[in-house]
Design a protein around this nucleic acid. Structure first.
Lengths: 197, 197, 197, 197
DNA sequence: CATGAATGAGTTTTCATTCAT
DNA sequence: TATGAATGAAAACTCATTCAT
């Protein structure tokens, strides 16, 4: 990794939490300057504009969450365990996630839909990515005969994801983790009553 | 209604969609000036600052949705019908809702949690209000012996709401209504399999 | 006194302290509205503009001080006593004067000299008035053979006034009354060594 | 001196007379923009806000006067000559001083006492500085046996300064230098009759 | 005649971005 | 390549004043 790439990575790593907490619009280059201790020139030398940095930071935020989720899914020894581990990931990491601004996909999706349109493509890709992750987990369960063969993997993937996002939203605003346990129980129920043979 | 109150209402009515579409931070007083064709002074004569207008607009946005939901709930002749109507409301109004920025609670909740803290109280109140609406609908179903007596009304209220919000998020970002039909079917399933006697 | 005149007097009476404390430029019509609990229209109905009110308030502030000084001078049974009473007036009233913004002539003179030129004439008149008051007090002392006949009344009047204003300035900024006692002793010394026969 | 420091100094140098003439409150950033031919951003790049610039300008205004006074005091070959030179400085420079807004300490003291409180500390320091200058001049005269040993240096310092400030005020408002000659004669008298052995 | 809603030019300040060094 | 001073447009907000009601 060359120096330029290291600087670029450094800027992203420092800015990403800020963007997730304050929002992409509301995070200024001065904020980024302060948190990186770099000059404007250094930042603009590595990113064409604030939008490029915002996208890179969003993708960094996602990748951080995704890599944890992927390792959690990989460690599971069955599709059921994998889905439960996915749900459990949010329960366990609620405090951290909440302190660092919440789910980056949720945040960026809301900001990107109408105003920060430049982010929209990236948000969509990342949402598709995590939906794909869940879908393929379910498909593996079907292939391995763990899950029923008539299960619509894509629909269950989006259903599970929607329950997660919806409850994260409520939990964050109400400042109470009970919604995450409702979420967790519901996902377990779905797995046991509808997915498992 | 005095002139001041009429102007105030007029400003809110014109600004509210803007706030929901562009976001509260990202909507400027110049935007509001343009959409109301009023001067800054006229706006500041009716609202102490932008925050007050933002809160009023958010509450207007909520009340618009809530009043429609309330009438839909009121028209239903059973608790089951009421909950189905609630879900159906989002399916039917998806285009309108989407065009006017999406669910105001979802939008405001994401913006308010970390940065626009002045909005937080109002968002919480409105979230509690709609959760309360759903909860009391379920409680009525329990009282009328339509729903099982061991149903935890509060948990089902937040579950249904989380499924709605989660799927609105995905549908908006993916620009596809199929997520709303998944949502609708899921809520129907919950009612039939878990709430009804 | 008609109603209009009473309202006018009321506005002046309420605004005058504000102008003296905050300065003429820095006192806004909103401040005046708040302190009088009147409407803009009521204020503009009684004064052509803010400048007219500022002048009237300044003159009210002066007249308040002057009438007290005049009564203090009138009570004195000799020219010496009168001048000492003049000096003593500032010593005694330091706290009140300081709390209500300090000497109105000092304040207005500084503001009026370059920027609030509309006030200049009035400030000059009032400064001349108080200098005249001191001068005629000294002249009375000369006529009554209490003071030496070769005393230049006008010069001693302005000298005494300058010592008063200079020490008020220092006392206010240093927040210490000792400068007023230096002033008082100096004026007494001048009277005894230079004015009295 | 780096570019930033040069620009900072340039802005101060251009703004300082404006602040002294128009007053600190009444000088706007647009005025400063015009007089410096710089953009608002350039000004805010060098000063955190208008207050910081106002303080810096006030101190520049003081330092200009002080350095002249100090050189005048340094050139004097006795304490008497020094005090006379101090007084004479105001007589000689009256036109210049008057044209550039008058004594900065007088102006700032009046503005700072109640409204521009952020300036108060600096005004106090500068007033203390010049009082200290006068006091140490008198003390040197005492040490060198030129002045009487029982002279209270601090009191005479503030007395002389008050006479200067008081007469500057009157001279400015009355637009007549005669008050400065009264001031000058009085200070000479005090030196000859009360300070000299 | 009094009201107070509205005006429009003004205020201070921050923004993303550029470019000579 | 990196610097950081400078830009210019835009931000939120306040002002003295007017005028339809």
């Amino acid at each position: 990794m060359g120096k330029a790439e290291r600087t670029r990575a450094f800027i992203i790593q420092k800015s990403a939490p800020l963007f997730n907490i304050k929002g992409y619009e509301n995070t200024s280059l001065s904020d980024i300057q302060e948190v990186t201790k770099l000059t404007k020139g250094a930042i603009y030398g590595n990113f064409k504009d604030k939008n490029e940095l915002a996208i890179a930071s969003f993708e960094y935020n996602c990748s951080r969450v995704f890599s944890e989720i992927e390792s959690v899914l990989a460690e599971a020894c069955s599709a059921k365990e994998a889905l439960l581990a996915f749900s459990n990931f949010y329960v366990k990491n609620w405090k951290n996630l909440s302190a660092s601004g919440g789910c980056p996909i949720l945040n960026a999706a809301v900001e990107a839909d109408d105003s920060l349109t430049f982010l929209k493509g990236s948000v969509r890709n990342n949402m598709e990515y995590i939906l794909g992750l869940l879908k393929s987990t379910i498909e593996k369960g079907i292939c391995s005969l763990e899950f029923r063969s008539d299960v619509h993997a894509g629909e269950y993937a989006s259903l599970i994801f929607s329950i997660v996002e919806g409850n994260i939203l409520i939990a964050k605003m109400m400042n109470h983790p009970k919604y995450l346990s409702i979420m967790d129980r519901r996902i377990r129920l779905i797995i046991e009553k509808e997915l498992l043979r």
